[in-house]
Design a protein around this nucleic acid. Structure first.
Lengths: 146, 146
DNA sequence: TTCCTTGCAAACGTTTTGCATCGGT
DNA sequence: ACCGATGCAAAACGTTTGCAAGGAA
């Protein structure tokens, strides 16, 4: 990662009122380096361990919560039993392959408009939404189950 | 509940290859009697206990799984930490009030078409989808938090 | 009578928390 | 030096499972 990115992260952490600690930097770096990757707490633990880091799982959970609060990462509950975090980007939804687990992000303007329309119909003040499409990705390497 | 409904349920259980037991009947009845209610396993346990039933939580989980397999009820993962089940009806999506937790069901044809369109764009074979809108219901009795 | 179903308790996987220690600022 | 951040272990939480006893067919 570049020095610019590192400094940016330091700024972001400070802005959020968080101390610039080793754990937080390492975790934030992982997200920065793979902007489209979706990490579970456990996956992060494995990667960090592989990288020679000795950051505890409890710390990872605490940092993930703080980074989410700071709007730096986004929490997704695709599966019922665990959460997947990704770097916060502009709004998007997900296509998820039920065979290989791969995730495709997409944005659709019509969809955004349609939500507003539906909300209005029910006199609802829309705050956020989740739209996830499940199916088969039909890719050559689909069988490579994760 | 009417006798007709009871008999219908017996038929449905038999069709699914499930024995017509007390637990299964009681649970299925609860869903039938409140077609729009969304029950967690725990909520069902409380209601059954209030009704003088002594059905164990493990049994409730087992029955819920079986009824879902039999396509009699539908499992929703609105919250990250627990599942909510409802009677299986024709396809619909949900509006959820973040203040009072109330759930409104809706169907929108344009939305269904749009999903197909998006899936095609990514060469995806669509199997199912989840569309949940979060916001405020703006109802008079909204503050009655559940 | 057969075997599925149930209740209970124990196990499970993910996430949270208490507490003493460590480390940014 | 201060007070927040961390590691560890234990707890918490929803859910699943093993097993012996019970119940529908």
């Amino acid at each position: 990662m570049s020095y610019i990115k590192k400094n940016e992260n330091i700024e972001k952490l400070k802005e959020a009122g968080l101390k610039v600690t080793h754990s937080r930097c390492k975790i934030l770096e992982l997200f920065q380096n793979s902007p489209d990757e979706h990490y579970t707490a456990d996956k992060l633990k494995d990667i960090l361990t592989d990288n020679g880091e000795t950051i505890g799982l409890a710390t990872i959970y605490r940092v993930l919560t703080q980074l989410e609060m700071a709007d730096l990462i986004q929490k997704n509950n695709f599966q019922e039993n665990h959460s997947a975090y990704e770097l916060k980007k502009s709004h998007h939804d997900h296509l998820i392959c039920t065979k290989c687990g791969s995730i495709i992000e997409f944005v659709n303007e019509d969809l955004e408009k349609l939500q507003e329309h539906i909300s209005k119909k029910y006199n609802f003040s829309l705050e956020s939404h989740v739209m996830t499409l499940f199916g088969n990705c039909n890719k050559k390497d689909c069988k490579n189950l994760k």
